[in-house]
Amino acid sequence: MPHALEAMSITKSYMTSDGPMTVLRNMSFHAAKDEFVAFVGPSGCGKSTLFNIITGLLGPDAGSIVVDGRETTGMVSAKIGYVLQKDLLFPWRTVVDNIILGLEVKGASKREARAKASRLLHDYKMSGYENKLPGELSGGMRQRVALMRTMITDPQIIMIDESYKALDYPLKIELEGELLDHVKGSGKTVIFITHDIEEAVTLADRVYVMKAHPGEIVEEIRIDLGTESHSIPERRMSPRFNEYYDRIWQRIGAPRTVNA
């Protein structure tokens, strides 16, 4: 069976005033069905660029992206859904109409899409918020709506770019737990991109550690916290948590201390 996602030798540079700058160099990686994969690296190491290349919003200079056995390099694939750091809700659309955006664009019947969205709102314990506007919601609720908007299109791969960065700690923990509840075991692949080592270790089955200038994978770490719990605090209590944390920290944190 092919991997849900496979990337081969991705290289990307941006043109700057000082000539071309290589942002990503020769990155190869993969993600399996039902797997949570994290990319961890310092700010500016090219995570968002990588994200855009995987989603097909940006083409790489070299290399290829294969989704479910089909090459999709530089193309937007319906199998990939994404959630960004900013919730990016349309402020003029109600919660329900924000959730159905993707279905609406794909030409689905609005009535059916709305019914589906209502069921989703129920699952996410947000019934009754159907006709509210984003401006009336808390940050956590907006982030939930953004996740629902992605989930409703039933993507096989969910890409998450530092979605929980701007949220306060307890809310972040809560949303991370919800992500596990809703997605883990559904057969979907989650690829999330973060500079937060803690988040990577608690959520991921596998972590790719990146360095910057140019962005490259320096280590691949399989994470096994030895628990099936979806509770974030419980996962952090795992005796192996610190070991993984330290190992990634050595890779990311250590060089920076030398530079400083």
Binding site: T55, V76, L88, F90, L101, V105
Partner: peptide, 9 residues
């Protein structure tokens, strides 16, 4: 937002 729309095809 434009990218989000593009990601929906």
């Amino acid at each position: 937002l434009i990218n989000l729309m593009r990601s929906f095809g």
